[in-house]
């Protein structure tokens, strides 16, 4: 478990803004570095100073009550939410909200999967997967189609290439969304409660795909309510409470020996609702 190792700022890291990398640093170049991030909607502060480093290949699960800021934090990482203070670096690129070109470059490295799938309804499954590589990466037609077919095969949907999204089940739509995000070859993947909108019997097929991504070394940040999945797949679990990282550690510790009363209460609630 890498999370238990000593902090060792790697010389190969991208632009490192500070001398001291902070307590969360993992071994290896952090692919994501969030420093003192604050975000508010008007007078209401949602994120109250987040510091977080994520190592390449790490799988991080973010848990917490609704309103704790976990989805907002995830959405800050690819600029869907604008934050007021702090800095965020992905794969050596600073997030600059008012620079559209820099935002597009950063977003090429950050895949995102949403709770509500958000497939493009007017395009076939194959076209959904091929649109961004065609427009953004200028990938050639034949190569693009070949890649899309391979990715759809990987998520178990090779026969759905020409289907329209509304003909698929929720689980299938979400797997297409995963293939669509993978087509851009992201360095890091954000999963925002990706099974919350699914019927219980469809959750497994999506989680299996996510698990296979983790096994292949993809860096994953996932906001999830699937505690058993977080426990099984995550290298590190972050418990957010009232806009702050309240407790963080390997899943055995977080779930086995929670330190704070807030986390204990939260885990008690989750157990109650899972029963």
């Amino acid at each position: 478990m890498s999370a238990t190792l000593q902090a060792a700022p790697a010389p190969t890291a991208g632009p490192v803004p500070r001398g001291d990398a902070g307590a969360h640093t993992q071994v290896g170049a952090p692919i994501l570095r969030i420093t003192a991030l604050r975000k508010s909607y008007g007078a209401h502060e949602v994120l109250k100073g987040i510091d977080l480093d994520v190592a390449r290949g790490e799988v991080v699960a973010i848990i917490g009550k609704s309103g704790s800021g976990k989805s907002t934090l995830l959405r800050c990482i690819n600029g869907l939410e604008v934050f007021q203070q702090g800095s965020l670096i992905v794969d050596g690129r600073h997030l600059l909200h008012d620079n559209p070109k820099a935002m597009r470059e950063l977003r090429q490295g950050v895949g995102m999967i949403f709770q509500s799938f958000n497939l493009f309804p007017h395009l076939t499954v194959g076209q959904n997967v091929m649109l961004a590589p065609h427009l953004v990466k200028r990938r050639g037609r034949a190569q693009n189609a070949e890649r899309a077919r391979a990715l759809l095969a990987r998520v178990g949907l090779s026969e759905k290439f020409d289907a329209m999204p509304d003909k698929l089940s929720g689980g299938q739509q979400q797997r297409v969304a995963i293939a669509r995000a993978l087509a851009m070859d992201p360095a890091i993947m954000l999963c925002d409660e990706i099974t919350s909108a699914l019927d219980p019997e469809l959750v497994g097929e999506v989680l299996r795909v996510v698990e296979s991504l983790a096994d292949e070394g993809m860096t994953l940040l996932m906001v999830t309510h699937e505690m058993s999945f977080a426990r099984k797949v995550a290298d590190r679990v972050i418990f957010m409470h009232q806009g702050l990282v309240h407790e963080m550690g390997p899943p055995e510790t977080i779930f086995g020996a929670p330190q704070t009363p807030e986390l204990r209460q939260f885990l008690g609630l989750m157990e109650g609702s899972a029963a």
Partner: peptide, 29 residues
Amino acid sequence: PRGQIEAAQSLALSRTQIFLHVVLPPALK
């Protein structure tokens, strides 16, 4: 739906590309 625009943004499409390829066709439909 806002979510479709966000999906397109997170796929690094530009504003113009989002309008022409993601927003306009379903709107026309």
